[in-house]
Design a protein around this nucleic acid. Structure first.
Length: 376
DNA sequence: CGGATTTGACCCCT
DNA sequence: AGGGGTCAAATCCG
């Protein structure tokens, strides 16, 4: 963590230095005038570059630290996910893939859980925001975009990654919103079973649920379980879900979500990770670092600088909180900051086509632009 | 002891 | 009538 702080303050120092040179007459930028218009643009550019790089590096170290401290191992620790999603959104699929690789290389413990969290949230996002579209979530395509060999990936961590990947290759059923009596809209998602612990449950989705029923379903081998949001009582949150094993693949669950979570709207709602990151002036170095998991990563922060393409000073940017947060439930707390990354990673309506092509239309350049989405 | 789960009964809709 | 969804008392569990 100390290394992170040093990097941040180093970047700030550079920025200050830059500012002072801009403001002071007769300094490095121009020998004749203090007017900014007279400053040689190339010098300006390289100075800005220097500052930007310093911030990028600091941010990268910060994220790596969070990622390693906060996510590894602990099945309930999903508080990194929103931050990760935010970054993924800014990076684009290619950089996302590269980042995953860098992280896998640098990490000695299991990364499967991260994959699960991120992928799951993306899949959910797809359902929330692209209702009715059919799509296939192809993790392998996304990862191999950045040069990672999918076969290799499968073998690295053994079956858990493989399992979760298989789960995400399941086709997303096009949901047909049927108006029910309470007008709740249905979203159906196929999820793989949990890798750790209870495999009779689908993997966590970051929400906390309370089971309120279970039923035999006619013509189905498996029972259906009924869950409602844990905070239904406290905050009147109407979200529900139904979970049922799929007939021909008991490792996959069909999860039907009904109603949206409203518990995060309450001012007294359970809060968690990203709220501190709304604005720069709120930065108060991070909440949930896990002191039990060692210090900052000792890894190749310089070699991985390729994956941080953006310096976004508006960290966070959303105050979304879900019905997660501190909870006694066995579901981990977690935030759900959706990313438009899913847009890139879903190719609509074509389950057999080459998803690489739709991910990255063959351009010679890298095709990333951190601001592209925001400005459109 | 309080919150979560289990499970048979009950309700509602088709 | 019967299937699916929910209730709520009993039970479990940390």
């Amino acid at each position: 963590m100390e290394e992170v702080l040093n990097s941040i303050s180093h970047a700030c120092e550079l920025a200050k230095k830059f500012e002072s040179k801009l403001l002071l007459p007769n300094m490095a930028f121009s020998s004749s005038s203090s007017s900014i218009t007279n400053i040689q643009p190339e010098i300006l550019v390289s100075s800005i570059d220097e500052v930007v790089k310093a911030f990028i590096s600091a941010k990268e170290k910060l994220l790596l630290t969070v990622m390693n401290n906060n996510l590894m191992g602990a099945a309930s620790s999903s508080s990194f996910a929103p931050l990760f999603m935010h970054e993924a959104q800014q990076m684009g699929a290619r950089s996302f893939s590269i980042m995953m690789q860098e992280w896998m290389k640098s990490s000695t413990t299991s990364y499967a859980h991260t994959m699960d969290q991120v992928m799951l949230q993306m899949q959910q996002h797809h359902h929330q925001h692209h209702e009715g579209q059919q799509g296939l979530f192809d993790v392998r395509a996304a990862l191999s975009v950045g040069g990672m060999d999918p076969q290799q990936l499968r073998n690295v961590e053994g079956s858990s990654v493989e399992k979760s990947m298989k789960g995400f290759e399941v086709e997303v059923s096009p949901s047909r919103p049927r108006k029910r009596k309470n007008d709740a809209e249905k979203r159906i998602v196929n999820l793989p079973a949990q890798q750790l612990g209870n495999t009779e449950m689908p993997m966590e989705d970051g929400f906390t649920w309370r089971k309120y029923g279970q039923k035999e379903i006619l013509g189905s081998k498996y029972q259906r379980s009924y869950y409602r949001c844990t905070h239904q009582k406290q905050y009147g949150c109407p979200a529900k879900k139904q979970v049922q094993k799929i007939e021909n693949n008991p490792n996959i669950f069909e999860v039907t979500y009904l109603g949206d979570h409203t518990c995060h709207m309450s001012s007294t709602a359970p809060s968690s990770f990203p709220q501190q990151l709304h604005q720069l002036d709120n930065i108060n170095i991070m909440p949930p670092f896990n002191p039990h998991q060692g210090g900052a990563p000792t890894t190749s922060s310089s070699s991985s600088s390729m994956w941080m393409h953006s310096v976004s000073l508006t960290l966070g940017g959303s105050s979304n909180r879900d019905c997660a947060g501190p909870s006694t439930s066995k579901y981990g707390g977690g935030d759900y900051l959706v990313a438009d990354m899913a847009d890139v990673m879903f190719n609509s309506g074509n389950s057999s086509g080459n998803s690489m092509e739709s991910l990255f239309p063959s351009n010679d350049d890298d095709n990333w632009d951190p601001n592209e989405k925001k400005s459109s």
